Amino acid sequence: MAFLGYSEYTFMNWAPIREPYVRKLLNKRSTATTSIGFFVAAALSILFIFVPGTML
């Protein structure tokens, strides 16, 4: 939601981000979290696709 300019203060209570510094900080954090998740998913996919399930 940081990419859209919203932040969650309490559970399911969304408010627009007003401060530019906070917006930049949350965008960096969400980019890092998204990229780490993507790389973990790609690594696990590659692991399970290319490693055979039985001994050849």
Rank of each mutant, 00 (worst) to 15 (best):
A2G: 03
F3G: 10
F3T: 09
G5A: 06
G5E: 05
G5M: 03
Y6T: 08
S7Y: 07
S7H: 06
E8G: 03
Y9L: 15
T10V: 12
T10E: 15
F11D: 13
M12N: 15
M12I: 13
N13Y: 07
N13M: 10
W14F: 15
W14Q: 13
A15R: 09
A15E: 14
A15T: 12
P16Q: 02
P16W: 01
P16N: 05
I17T: 03
I17C: 00
R18Q: 14
R18N: 14
R18P: 00
E19G: 04
E19R: 09
P20C: 02
P20H: 02
P20S: 06
Y21H: 10
Y21D: 15
V22N: 05
R23A: 12
R23F: 02
K24C: 09
K24D: 14
L25K: 14
L26T: 01
L26R: 03
N27T: 13
N27E: 13
K28N: 14
R29F: 10
S30G: 05
T31S: 15
A32Q: 01
T34E: 06
T34R: 02
S35R: 07
I36N: 07
I36Y: 05
I36V: 13
F38K: 01
F39G: 03
F39V: 06
F39L: 13
V40F: 01
V40Y: 02
A42T: 08
A42Q: 03
A42H: 01
A42I: 03
A43G: 13
A43V: 01
L44K: 00
S45H: 03
S45K: 00
S45D: 06
S45F: 10
I46A: 14
I46V: 09
L47H: 09
L47M: 11
F48D: 04
I49D: 05
I49H: 08
F50V: 05
F50A: 07
P52S: 11
G53N: 12
G53S: 12
T54F: 05
T54N: 08
T54P: 00
T54A: 04
M55V: 08
M55L: 08
M55Q: 09
M55K: 11
L56W: 06
